[in-house]
Design a binder for these strands. Structure first.
Lengths: 217, 217
DNA sequence: ATACTATGAATGAAAG
DNA sequence: CTTTCATTCATAGTAT
């Protein structure tokens, strides 16, 4: 079939990758993609300052093939989108037990939902996970200071949205986000060689260390 | 790329690539590598020939986020984010012994990884715990649980059921498992400094990582 | 086309 | 070790 013209020496047209390999590959490429993105930006910024046209010529890679994003977005796997029917079932189940369904439960649900479309257990698992997390967030968002113990009410009709998406950065010094015109999310990384680690906010050893280092040793 | 030409071999959870896809992948990576090399060089050249100090001062993000390698707001990130270099090492170690590293082992690993950025033993410990747990979950997600809809011993024997891939599917009749030689070269271009700066992978998640979604349906 | 929002997915950390 | 929580990223859908 498809290996009619693109077959390797073995004559087999397909190869199987493990998740590990897949993941690694994805990571590698992501790294490249990010590097390129940033370098390109830098390049653009620099270009704006001076005209070093001569340098650009002769290099097919930064002339424009790159800048025009010929490399990016080559096919992409899109994420699962629950069908209305599936959603309904999920919501219903969620209402009953807004707790995490057990493994077996997940399986059952998955099987059930599979009748309405392609779905995997992971999808179901994620859905509940997200549903729960978001439900909780919304609750805390609408009741800032009241008692929060009895709030188990489902508020899906509440399309409460954050008035201010909040950059989630408590640090608002002179930082000028450049993300105005491009998605440069996470311009920061956790490389604080100088910042103290926050693993042990005191002098106590994390539970696991005690267990493994002190008791076990 | 039209996915219509390819098929997943009916694999459930197995990623099957055709030679064509493989070729494309290789090409993409090559392109990235080349681009990065070129851009890095260009950047170096530019940096050398001018001192865009003004720009630097005015824009902490533009100056050269890549070279400074740690331009991020202190305290803006709470949780550790492994850098590509660290991840690579971790994955490698995980491959060898996917068992829990002993206390000394953790220390060693931590020390090793510290060369690439801030990290603590707790981070390493957690990483392995998560890695293992998720590896297991993934495989159980597609586990050949032929059992009917009974909730029997849920503890099942997915201990070391399949040590190899998280998800193998007995449908690889004409599929050749990708050997570990399929590794494309790592970002071996001289941009380690840059790599260390990045932490947001996934600006481009091509067709791999695809699952049994409706990609073929 | 651009921006925004809703939400699926990934993952570090913590609880049990 | 297993399960759950919290936060973040990326993308599909939708509005401007």
């Amino acid at each position: 079939m498809e290996d009619g013209k693109f077959q390797n020496g073995g004559g087999l047209g397909v190869k199987v990758m493990t998740d590990e390999q897949m993941e690694m590959l994805r990571k590698q490429i992501s790294v490249y993609a990010t590097i390129c993105e940033q370098l390109v930006e830098m390049h653009k910024a620099l270009s704006a300052q001076q005209d070093f046209a001569g340098m650009r010529l002769g290099n097919p890679y930064f002339c424009d093939p790159l800048l025009s994003s010929s490399v990016h977005k080559i096919g992409s796997r899109q994420r699962w989108t629950p069908k209305p029917a599936q959603l309904e079932i999920l919501e219903q189940i969620f209402k009953q037990c807004n707790a995490t369904p057990g493994r077996q439960k997940i399986k059952d649900i998955t099987k059930e939902l599979a009748q309405h479309g392609q779905i995997s257990e992971t999808n179901v698992y994620n859905w509940f996970q997200n549903r729960r997390a978001r439900s909780k967030r919304k609750q805390s968002a609408i009741l800032p200071n009241s008692g929060e113990s009895e709030v188990e009410t489902e508020i899906e009709s509440f399309k409460e949205k954050k008035t201010k998406p909040e950059d989630s950065q408590p640090d608002e010094e002179d930082a000028t986000p450049v993300s105005d015109h491009m998605h440069f999310h996470s311009p920061d990384i956790g490389i604080d060689q100088f910042v103290g680690k926050m693993e042990s906010p005191g002098s106590c050893i994390p539970y696991w260390q005690m267990e493994q280092y002190d008791l076990f040793g």
